[in-house]
Amino acid sequence: MNTASRWLFALGLGLAVAGVTVDASTAEAQEVQVTGPLAGAPAVRKMRIYRDGRFQIQPEFGATLVDEFVRTMFVGAQIGYHFTDWLGIHAFFDYGVPLATDLTDQVTERGQRTDYNALSLPDPSKFRDQIGEMKFLTGVQATFIPLRGKLSLFQAAFVDTDFYLFGGVAFASVEERADVKNGSTVVGATCGPATFRDARADGQGRFNDVNDACITTQGQRSTRLAIAPTFGVGLSLYFTEYLAMTLEYRAFPFKWNTSGTDEGGLSKERERDTSGPFPDGSIDSSDRTSQFNQMFKLGFAFYLPFQGELTK
């Protein structure tokens, strides 16, 4: 998601939240303004307290959205404890299984290598080896549950629900293409536009050396732990006193090199491959681009102890 869309998204979300907040303060119809015998009485009687003082263990499954080169399927678990019915703290761990997107397949099948992009794409058929992947995602978060209610499904089934917001810090284990320094030697040769061009002029033997150097860098990997804010919203549907299904949207934006290509450089004008300094001939942290990573999760939450309390 680019900057403009992020701004628009934030604006939309802000307006929605502002709309709720502003209108709620003057929404007489929605406020419980009972002047009769129920004045001062709670909005809900005999409400089941699902969270207060209970632990939550939640196996969960997820999938990332709007992916460029890899869609990550997550399987994991979340545990938490609720201090009150509206506030809790959670920790989660999700193991990632990467799946190539259609764009990755297209680059693999149709990508072209020239002298200029020899470092970015040494061998199109091995493009899958160089793209970034998320191995796991873990973190801690505070969960805020402002809305509690129930819903009717086809006027037949009635299910308790709650709506929650959460925010915290996430740690993503990211496996990316390993750094390649400009001018560094790999297996006896240097991978770069100039060396490629010169090697081609020197003959097939020298060209093969440089080509091998480039292909070697393509498969080299490095892993790091990216720290990111994480936030989102979710909906719980309580099937029983101790079991709920959760639907959750989570965002965890951070910078990473999803393609394993050389995107960084000094020039911002981006003269199409005619300028010297751009790309910069290195694979490093400057090639990481901001990614608004987001995912959708489905979970099944078990609450312990199994029995909850009822309000008066």
């Binding site: 929404a27 406020e31 419980v32 402002p146 809305l147 209610g149 819903l151 009717s152 499904l153 629900t161």
Partner: peptide
């Protein structure tokens, strides 16, 4: 609209909602 319900916010406000 197959699903509808209501939310209570802090036990003070009640929001009707539907899917």
């Amino acid at each position: 609209v197959p699903v509808y319900g209501k939310f209570s916010m802090f036990g003070r406000y009640i929001f009707q909602w539907d899917a």
